[in-house]
Simulated assay, not measured.
Amino acid sequence: MVTTRVRQPLWLFSRAVRLAPLMGLSLGLVACSGGDKTSDLTAPRNHLLSEDRSPTGGDDQLSGGVNAYLWRGALDTLSFMPITTADAVGGFILTDWYMPPAAKGERFKITAYILDRRLRSDALRVTVFRQVYEDGQWGDVPPAANTSSDITSKILARARQLRADNGNRDN
């Protein structure tokens, strides 16, 4: 059996050699852009607050079947925290870790689910996660028992206010 070695053209090799330093530089810049994120945790990135209440410009129903007043009330209430993911169609909001300025070594994360088209208290589920920094690492600790219900109450109050501002219209 005779094997034939196929030679690659020289221009392919020389092009790869020329691009290698550029690729290395690009990867180096990407790696350097990370850094310490702890100072960034207290500064909220509320880039979603300038959006309309819904994709259609303020209807009380979003296309995914969630209540727009609850959606906007949740965004308004959680605006002090950096928002990682917000899906208006699915009714899901996930915040990033937030460190209150007064609480050192403690951080919180919140998920909010809007579950229904109606403006009702059972159409909203809020979960709060809490971590404490001990011995050089973050560890999960349960939040106070009333934290989730307090945030839920604030979201519902804001949603009712938005509805009242809209003439108490549901459609």
Score class of each variant (00 low, 15 high):
108 F>N: 00
119 L>I: 01
100 P>Y: 04
150 D>S: 13
57 G>S: 02
49 L>T: 10
100 P>S: 10
2 V>G: 07
83 I>Y: 02
158 R>K: 15
152 T>L: 00
29 L>W: 12
160 R>D: 11
81 M>I: 08
132 V>F: 12
151 I>Y: 00
124 L>P: 01
22 L>M: 09
143 P>F: 05
45 R>L: 14
100 P>C: 07
1 M>Q: 09
82 P>Y: 05
148 S>C: 10
48 L>K: 03
64 G>Y: 02
150 D>W: 04
145 A>D: 15
163 R>L: 03
102 A>H: 10
130 R>Y: 08
162 L>K: 00
79 S>T: 09
88 A>F: 01
5 R>N: 11
155 I>L: 00
69 Y>R: 01
127 T>G: 08
109 K>A: 14
71 W>S: 01
25 L>I: 14
113 Y>N: 14
21 P>Y: 05
44 P>N: 07
78 L>I: 08
79 S>W: 05
33 S>I: 13
107 R>Y: 02
155 I>M: 02
4 T>G: 08
18 R>K: 13
12 L>W: 13
126 V>T: 04
7 R>T: 06
49 L>P: 05
97 W>P: 02
2 V>F: 13
97 W>N: 05
116 D>T: 07
137 Q>M: 12
109 K>S: 11
62 L>M: 12
141 V>L: 14
87 D>K: 06
36 D>H: 09
97 W>M: 03
145 A>N: 13
63 S>H: 09
116 D>M: 03
127 T>A: 09
166 N>P: 02
107 R>A: 05
81 M>A: 08
65 G>I: 01
20 A>V: 14
58 G>K: 01
52 D>Y: 09
107 R>W: 05
34 G>L: 11
26 S>A: 14
167 G>D: 06
